[in-house]
């Protein structure tokens, strides 16, 4: 196996072998499916207007917070427990270790999100009765695919930030309020929307079918695939920062 494959395989063992991985990913699944069940019962209400995709992603947007916590703590715990020293002694190439870590976190999140997202959508659909939409409609495929990609990217983004701060607490303290609480509220305020609408969580909402272009209050200036491109840019910037931080600093 190549040196990178060895490093990535080691990172995968690390993720798998700590209890918090199973706990956080289970909580993510339980939240997403539970919300799907609850919200699925009210798809006919005015708020969702029979839109099963919106109802699905409402739950996933909340559950996403747990997913981000998983991604951040998987990096942060390496620093808080001191295992980063053993990791750097085993894989002295900083760039290789960083790439392996990001790849493992991204793969774990991607593997967790896809089945949960599909199951949540299936639950909402089964509860929607006549409101159910065809699985093969392009809008359905596009939204589910977009949701999968954007949640994975957001977690890699958060994990890369954690490499820069080297702390679970600091990363969550920065990311949760800015990106997930104020962002979702503040993104609707006209004076700051032109800027805030490009924050990663806002982009995620567009990609995940939570806003429709042209909506006077929730509408954004870009569509789903442009949104994914914006998220890729955010993630790339965070990866560059994390890579730089890891190369520059002492362990």
């Amino acid at each position: 196996m190549s040196a990178f494959a060895n490093a990535a395989s080691a990172e995968w063992v690390k993720l798998r072998s700590v209890r918090s991985t199973a706990v956080t990913l289970s909580v993510f699944a339980a939240l997403a499916l539970g919300f799907g069940w609850l919200i699925g019962g009210s798809v006919e209400d005015a708020f969702y207007n029979g839109d099963t995709l919106s109802a699905t992603f409402m739950g996933l947007l909340v559950a996403q917070l747990v997913l981000v916590t998983f991604a951040v703590s998987s990096v942060g715990s390496e620093y808080s427990t001191g295992t980063i020293k053993a990791a750097l002694a085993a894989v002295p190439s900083r760039g290789r270790l960083f790439a392996a870590k990001m790849a493992a976190v991204g793969a774990a999140v991607a593997a967790a999100v896809l089945p949960v997202e599909l199951a949540a959508f299936a639950i909402v659909q089964s509860r929607a009765g006549a409101g159910a939409v065809p699985w093969t409609a392009w809008e359905t495929v596009e939204s589910l695919l977009g949701g999968w990609i954007s949640m994975t990217l957001l977690c890699v983004f958060a994990a890369a930030i954690a490499v820069m701060t080297r702390s679970t607490v600091w990363t969550l303290a920065i990311l949760l309020p800015i990106l997930f609480l104020s962002g979702q509220g503040l993104g609707n305020l006209d004076p700051i929307r032109p800027v805030v609408q490009y924050f990663p969580d806002q982009v995620g909402m567009v990609v995940m079918h939570m806003t429709i272009p042209g909506d006077p209050q929730f509408g954004r200036d870009y569509g789903a695939w442009t949104g994914i491109a914006i998220l890729v840019a955010w993630t790339a910037a965070a990866l560059a920062g994390g890579w730089f931080a890891m190369r520059r600093r002492d362990a």
Binding site: K14, S17, V18, S20, S77, T81, T83
Partner: peptide, 11 residues
């Protein structure tokens, strides 16, 4: 190095 540098829930 530091013998205590272990993840607490890893075997």
């Amino acid at each position: 190095l530091e013998a205590g540098d272990l993840h607490p829930t890893r075997t």
